[in-house]
Amino acid sequence: MSRLSLILLKLLTTFVIVGAGLWGGGLLLFRLNGALAIMGAIGFGFAALAGLIGIWTGALRLPLGFAVLFLGLLGWWNSMLPSHDRDWIPELAHLPEVAGEGDRITVTNLRHFRWRTETDYDQHWETRSFDLSKIEGADLFLSYWSGEAIAHLLVSFTFSDSLPLTFSIEVRREKGEEWSSLAGFFRTYEMAYVAADERDIVGLRTHARGEDVRLFRLAATSDRARDVLLAYVADVNRLAKKPRWYNTLMTNCTTVVYHLVGSVAPGWAFSLPLDPRVLLSGYLPGYLARIGAIRSDMPLDELIRRGRISERARMLSLDDPEFSQRIREGVPTGRP
């Protein structure tokens, strides 16, 4: 092996060890408790450092030792199994399930809380039926709480004869458990679907949390909206039967929807190429305009401005049966 090839191999191995060291240290830090977590992360960091020294000094026993340690950590990682059986926070205590017969679907465990604050609310879980032959379209809500880059995504299906049916993909936290985006990389949280009334799931964000919520009407025909809804239904039922880990990057409120829509994309007029804005969900409207999923015949800034519904929503009572209709007033339709 030439000297240049050897140096390149050492550099590549260095990057691998650094990546493995950071990942393993994070896993120990977030999955162990207290001082043991700190000690484990530091110890694993020193093992990675020893492996790096061994690569560049020729002491191969050091990187080999780190490799054995890392494989052991991977074994522990693979032994971690998600569960539906934990002491969940009340708003995520139940997962929805959907039964279908002909054109009619019935959603059990549909959430319809009445939020006064994030900690003061009335709990209601309902069973509602929806007629798929009455579906009109689909809308997208983006809720911003910290800057423009990241937003939480909700997809809402509208019907001519009933209130909208809204789905949210969320971190299923246990009581007393805090959310951390970093911890979300290390099998700390399970994933949850929430099926809800808009007065619950949008009202939580506009009224209780005071977030900046923006509404975009999707350019989906009733048939396309039905395809996406049925893709949701199938995945909702899969999750109800088999728990799944949430992952901050790969299994979150945007990427799961991306894959659901991709599963029915052959019947749609636009394709779904990978785009960074799928991960940086706050910038998703620009991507949606480019592929024709929302209005592209008007400036995006104008579409965003007219889609800001928080102020209008906060003027409404969450008991108003016309809440969904009234927050859509002035918001451009999905198609010209």
Rank of each mutant, 00 (worst) to 15 (best):
V256I: 10
E177G: 02
A151N: 05
F15W: 14
G267E: 14
R61M: 03
N247Y: 06
D161C: 09
R31Q: 11
G58A: 07
E91C: 02
L60C: 08
S296A: 14
R277N: 12
R114I: 15
H259N: 10
W179L: 14
I38C: 05
E311F: 00
L318T: 07
D103E: 15
G203S: 06
I53S: 06
A231H: 08
L6M: 05
D122L: 09
T206A: 14
F113E: 03
L318A: 13
I294L: 12
M250S: 14
S83A: 12
Y232T: 07
G292V: 10
P299D: 12
R205G: 14
R238Q: 02
A41V: 08
R328L: 11
R86H: 12
M191T: 06
R173C: 00
P82M: 07
G210R: 05
L27F: 15
E174T: 08
R86F: 11
F113V: 07
Y189H: 02
Y283W: 06
R290L: 01
K134N: 14
T254W: 07
R295S: 12
L239I: 08
S5A: 11
G334M: 06
L318M: 13
R187C: 04
L153G: 00
L142A: 10
A35G: 04
A293P: 00
A220F: 13
D122N: 04
F113W: 05
G25M: 10
L279D: 02
L249D: 05
A231N: 06
V68P: 10
W56C: 14
Y232K: 02
F167D: 08
A37R: 02
L288I: 03
E97S: 14
G262N: 09
E174C: 03
L29N: 13
F130W: 10
I89G: 06
K242Y: 09
K242L: 07
E126S: 06
L62E: 01
N109H: 14
G203E: 11
T166D: 06
S156A: 08
R187T: 00
P336G: 13
F46G: 01
P266S: 07
L71G: 12
Y189F: 13
M1L: 08
D197L: 12
P299S: 08
V68Q: 14
R3H: 03
L239K: 00
K175Q: 11
F66L: 15
L11G: 05
G176K: 05
G100H: 01
T117R: 15
E178Y: 11
M80A: 12
A269C: 04
V264K: 09
L239P: 00
G25T: 09
S310I: 13
R290G: 01
W88N: 05
G58D: 13
A208S: 13
V278I: 14
